[in-house]
């Protein structure tokens, strides 16, 4: 991100110094103003969803659902022991529901554990599964669309689900083919 930012800023500002020097500062300020508006909207969106998700978490539903994920996890990740499977199942389940506050620490634990066991295949699989994000409900996107004037903010739910399935299946298959067990 540092390289991208440096290139874009230097080229843009450099170019504008010759073409429209008076617009540089106003362009930067207007970008910041847009960020302020977006932040206000995001605070509202996150408040609602994090409130609801907290209830979900406190009901202990994540733990229960992760038990369902246990068997598929063992199948996909190959030869992993019980404690690794537990972390992985929790990570995958939380990612699917959209609880990233639970998913990330579990993912970190799983990665550290697999690292210690020298299980490179399962590590690569964890990367692919986490980075292709199987998510059941894109809550932030729905709320943001709603806020920005969409009359049918749910239209994207099914296409998103299909498309995230495509990426996750690709990720799992490519890892199974190209990474040594």
């Amino acid at each position: 991100m540092n390289v991208i930012f440096a290139c874009i800023l230097i080229v843009s500002v450099g170019y504008m110094t010759f073409t429209a020097p008076e617009l540089i500062l106003s362009a930067m300020t207007s970008g910041a103003e847009k960020a302020l508006k977006l932040a206000a909207g995001l605070t509202a969106i996150y408040s609602v969803w994090l409130g609801i998700f907290e209830l979900l978490e406190r009901s202990g539903l994540t733990e229960k659902l992760s038990k369902l994920a246990y068997k598929p996890v063992k199948r996909i990740f190959g030869n992993v022991d019980d404690s690794a499977a537990k972390y992985l199942a929790l990570n995958v389940t939380a990612n699917i529901i959209g609880l990233s506050s639970v998913a990330t620490p579990m993912g970190i634990k799983a990665a550290a554990y697999l690292d210690e066991k020298d299980n490179e295949y399962a590590k690569a699989m964890l990367f692919a599964v986490a980075a292709t994000s199987l998510q059941i409900l894109p809550t932030t996107v729905i709320s943001l669309r709603d806020k920005l004037g969409s009359v049918s903010s749910y239209d994207i739910v099914l296409p998103t689900l299909l498309s995230t399935l495509v990426s996750t299946v690709c990720g799992i298959l490519l890892t199974a083919v190209f990474v040594k067990r």
């Binding site: 874009i8 080229v11 843009s12 500002v13 617009l23 362009a27 970008g31 910041a32 847009k34 977006l38």
Partner: peptide
């Protein structure tokens, strides 16, 4: 991060990059 990226977008847009 959001703010910095939006500044980047704006500068990129207005400069024609």
């Amino acid at each position: 991060y959001v703010l910095t990226v939006l500044i980047m977008c704006e500068v990129m847009e207005q400069s024609g990059l």
